[in-house]
Design a protein around this nucleic acid. Structure first.
Lengths: 344, 344
DNA sequence: ATTGGCACTCTAGGGATAAGAGTGCTAACG
DNA sequence: CGTTAGCACTCTTATCCCTAGAGTGCCAAT
């Protein structure tokens, strides 16, 4: 049976442990918090909490530290209370300041996400991960071709969400401005207003309408577009703050190298994030994590949206013993700001 | 007085120390190498080497470890012998394989450099840094404008070295295709064939030739170009392999966090690399380094070129106790391949 | 110049011990 | 029944001491 005070004690233990990184003793608890009871009573509570698996003692005669399960109920409370939190408002206004200062001058999506990740990493002191937005079911606005040299051109894909991407293609022969212009027309006739998912098939079909002499050129252009589309599906993420993890290395029980390596495998990480169902926000604590390398760390997840539709995830990676309250607030604030920013 | 065998002993000590990470004893030296003398003789040599400051003993009764000065003469020999080295040839052909496999399909400079850094980091097990090439005294081939929406356009700067960069500009009012085309003509009339360094001044002057109604638009376009030029001077580097440093953390005497932070300060790092005079290749070993944070690590430097002209530096960062022979070979090989690649 | 021999030094590791922190339990209390 | 004081008990951590072993430096001999 877990009483109200039991939970208060759990909360206090977690807070103290996060603050001091030392097992928390019954005596220090009554000193730091006003429970109005003696340390012996607290000891009884602690025994109950240990019984239920919320805390554990590193050895017989030491204070207690939270288990992953203990963090879990703590974080659940946090997420519940998230809306009223003053912390989130503070974090929000703080990040907003930074945000408008640095992001306003950037027009490039890459830079915006990269900078956002850096801001989040700096604000929390943990490592930040931001997925690139997903371009499924977005409409194509135009495809542009810009000649760069006699046999090279830049293929530019512009979507209705104003995402712009380019790729350089090399032609087997020299290509005139005229021909390029012609092909640009053909491609746009097919592509404009079309769902990006449908584009590959449509382009392939349009290839047949081209005079056979120019087919090779058209082919290259189409390949270029396909690369662009593919690089959207491709698992790109913005990443910042590894340094922070190294600074808190002892928190990872020696698993830091493999953790960093896992984070380096951008593709896997992206896939992992994508798989997480989108109950927002969400925390994954230590051993709850199915990926072994992450089992000594916690993830805080949220997502950013465009018109309420989820674009991609924002994640924070840190030791299980992290400041959930502050960090959750920061993640939520950043996700919110990013959503607003993208809607421009 | 340092004899020939003295140097051979120094070399052997360094090799063994790099291999084992343990202070090297006189006895183990005669076992592992064929000096044809007894350990007592080696001890005399070691005393001489210590006298000259090439090696040192962590404590009275332990083997010796190389000092920075010791590494220095060792590395100098390496650099001397660089040309005939079989190691470099091996490293070269190995990297080349990887190189052609991964780089051939990439057309983007960012991706090429990023991938090159990753290859180098992987081949050496250290951290790799590659400066972006410097665009001073390159000629402008063209400036393109691509309309993206009613009031946005992409400004694309193409140089004779086929470097392509783009920046999105936002106009205060709607702009017609026609007007954009007109401005494109004006800008190119000024810019084509011009030295990139001279471009800012020329563009500013050309602003006066524009009808006052369109001045605001022209102004925005010029600003866009200036951003592009500026982002060249801006200190960009490709970076890979931090994970490797963490894995060898003990080698950095606790200075790893501050080292990583220094590496994170891309601007400073870039400036530092630029300052290094271009005797190629070059090694900077431990305390030789003027930057305190790097004083527990060594840098290996080379540069990549276009038509023999230095474009930028390639650097490898690792612990003072690194495999100089293997790593130097890899750095040289990569610099060479990168040069060839850029000349296309 | 090289070498065998030996004394000397210093480290690393293994008990042993003592101090201290913290708990669990019991018996008493309102 | 929840709370509490008190106390015995446990486990960690630090310190000291000791020993074994590694490695050197030096000397006298070749």
């Amino acid at each position: 049976m877990i009483s109200v005070r039991n939970l208060a004690v759990l909360r206090a233990i977690i807070e103290d442990f996060i603050a001091t990184n030392e097992p928390v003793a019954s005596k220090s608890l009554v000193e730091r918090h006003n429970f109005g009871v003696s340390s012996a009573t607290i000891r009884n509570d602690m025994a109950a909490l240990e019984e239920e698996g919320y805390i554990t003692a590193p050895h017989t005669s030491s204070g207690r530290i939270p288990t992953d399960k203990g963090y879990r109920v703590f974080v659940d409370q946090l997420i519940q209370a998230e809306a009223e939190s003053v912390e989130i408002r503070k974090s929000f206004s703080e990040l907003r300041k930074q945000f408008s200062k640095t992001l306003d001058q950037l027009t490039d999506l890459d830079e915006r996400l990269e900078t956002s990740a850096q801001l989040l990493a700096k604000a929390t002191g943990e490592a930040a991960v931001i997925q690139y937005p997903n371009l499924n079911s977005v409409l194509v606005r135009a495809i542009e071709l810009v000649k760069v040299s006699t046999n090279r051109a830049l293929v530019i894909l512009i979507t209705e969400s104003e995402r712009i991407q380019q790729h350089l293609v090399v032609f087997p022969v020299e290509v005139s401005e005229d021909l390029l212009h012609q092909i640009r027309g053909k491609v746009n006739a097919v592509a404009t207003g079309v769902l990006i998912d449908d584009l590959p098939a449509l382009l392939k079909k349009s290839l047949e309408t081209v005079a056979s002499a120019d087919k090779a050129i058209m082919q290259k252009v189409i390949e270029g577009v396909l690369v662009l589309i593919d690089s959207n599906r491709q698992d790109k993420i913005a990443f910042a703050g590894t340094t922070n993890l190294v600074r808190n290395e002892d928190q990872f029980a020696g698993g830091l190298p493999s953790l960093l390596e896992t984070l380096d495998q951008q593709k896997d990480l992206f896939a992992f994030l994508s798989k997480v169902e989108s109950v927002q926000p969400k925390a994954i604590i230590g051993s709850e994590n199915s990926v072994v390398e992450l089992s000594n760390s916690s993830l805080l997840l949220s997502s950013y949206t465009d018109q309420g539709q989820e674009l991609a995830k924002v994640a924070l990676v840190g030791p299980t013993r992290m400041n959930y309250s502050k960090n959750l607030a920061a993640v939520l604030a950043l996700a919110h700001l990013l959503s607003k920013d993208i809607e421009e």
